[in-house]
Simulated scan of single mutants.
Amino acid sequence: MTGSLWSARPTCGDYEFRGSTLRIEVTDPEEVLFPTDCGLSLLGALQTDTTFELANKTVLDVGAGSGVYTVALLAAGAAHVTALDVNTASAAATRANVLRNGLDADRLTCVTSDLAEYAPTGRFDLVVTNPPHLPHDPSYTTAEGLEVALVAGRDGRSLYDVVVARADDLVAPGGTLLVAHSSLADVGRTTRELGNRGYTARTLEVYEMDIPLLAYAEHKQTLLGHLERLRDSGSATFEGDRFTVHAVAFQRPATTGEPEETR
């Protein structure tokens, strides 16, 4: 997976995924976040683990952003992808990138909604997400697309917690929740809470990378102070300015006592 070293300026780039060369562009990176190495790590894991089947799957892309996952999954043969994002600019960016790559837009549905309020018509074979993972502080948090994509509540877990709470509403029996999980947001807690509901966890890859301090240069010490607080409480793991991203597949049991239904 070569996408972690973008070959062009930071509003566009090419990446390889399962035999396809794909291109992602954003018009305004302050409005829609250009894909980060954290998000790309999940595609890197899927590139390495070719046993993870994507063809003919119904997929929900939670926090679709620019559509980097949606594009990759459609190119890999997903039957249909629903791209969900609370950012109103995401739908246009995702659809434009799907069309830019010559993919079938009839296999795409874009939804602008908060995940907590999203009402799917059925469950999905695969739910994929790279949640925001930095702790909130009023000095650096705004309502812009960049901040919505990176900052998530006091402990950086706001979207993780909603994903976990709604997993049974979203993931079909026998389906998979695939997460790019930051070590800054308590990987163990997510694993325990889903494990208590019968999900089995498989770590595909673990990647080490820099905490995105450049984006918060003016507030670096404030952000690090929050992260150190979380580390002291046992809910964040990092060394210096380096953390890890875990590409984890949580599989729901095939038998739940409920009728199987997918979108």
Rank of each mutant, 00 (worst) to 15 (best):
L146G: 11
N196I: 03
A91W: 00
V32Y: 04
C110Q: 01
T222R: 13
R107H: 12
H246D: 06
E193A: 10
S158E: 15
T244W: 11
S158F: 11
R23F: 12
G44C: 03
G77Y: 07
S20N: 10
Y69W: 07
A201I: 14
T27Q: 14
L5K: 09
D14C: 02
H246R: 11
L194S: 07
T21E: 05
T244A: 11
L103D: 03
S90C: 08
H80C: 00
R166A: 00
H136I: 00
T21S: 04
P35K: 04
C12F: 11
L177F: 13
V68T: 07
V187A: 09
S139Y: 10
T21C: 02
A119D: 02
N56D: 14
A105R: 09
T109C: 06
T51P: 00
S7I: 08
A185F: 06
D85M: 09
V179C: 13
L33M: 15
T191K: 14
E193P: 04
G44R: 01
A249C: 11
V206E: 02
E228K: 09
D114S: 10
V68K: 01
T244K: 14
L184R: 10
D104Y: 05
T36F: 06
G19C: 07
V59T: 08
P173F: 08
V245R: 00
G198A: 01
L184S: 07
L73E: 08
D186G: 02
A55T: 09
A8I: 08
N130I: 06
T11L: 12
G44Y: 03
R9Q: 12
E261G: 07
L194P: 10
H80K: 09
D85L: 07
A185L: 09
S20W: 06
P173R: 03
Y69E: 00
S20L: 01
L22Y: 06
T121N: 13
C110M: 03
T94S: 00
V81C: 08
H136D: 06
T11A: 11
N56G: 06
V128R: 03
N97I: 13
G257E: 05
T237L: 14
S20H: 15
P212Y: 05
R192M: 12
G122H: 00
D114G: 06
L74V: 07
L5C: 06
Q47P: 02
F238V: 11
E16I: 04
S66F: 10
L184A: 07
V162M: 08
V162W: 08
M209Y: 04
